[in-house]
Amino acid sequence: MKLDNLDRQIIQATQTGFPLNSKPYHVIAEQLNVTPQEIMLRFQRMLEMGIIRRIGAIPNHYKLGFTANGMSVWNVSDEVVDEYGKKIGELPFVSHCYRRPRHLPIWHFNLFAMVHGKTRKEVEEKIEQIALLLGENDLDHQILYSTKILKKTGLRLID
């Protein structure tokens, strides 16, 4: 399924946020000169296609007190990484979970799980639960805390 011109216009108009108006879809419709029904249909379709992950509020972790931001990285053998990746992704405190390539010798970790907490202790307790889940399949792991945000801008999807 391909995006057409109107879909792209909708994305462009809303990538930095929705209008804060009691009828947000109507406001977008007016901007783009189409009916509100058409706009709502497009949003429904993009959600179903997975083009939109969700609609709602995107919280600022730092500002909300979740200042310990631990990127936990794991070395899990290739044979079982997918099985465990799914299980780890299901843990309620894991916000992102991906498989990524190794770069030997400097980088031997292939599974990334982002864990946010209010303190490092809280993050470490959560990481311990992941380690327990992996058991002997945890060949090695580390937590890479962010010590400084050097840049944070929204992704510009469509210019």
Binding site: L3, I11, Q15, F18, I52, I55, A57, I58, N60, K63
Partner: peptide, 21 residues
Amino acid sequence: LLKEGFLSRFGALYHAEKLGG
């Protein structure tokens, strides 16, 4: 909440790769 920075955005969260990027 947006103005004070507790929310970074309100709207649709798009899936970058599915947009072809």
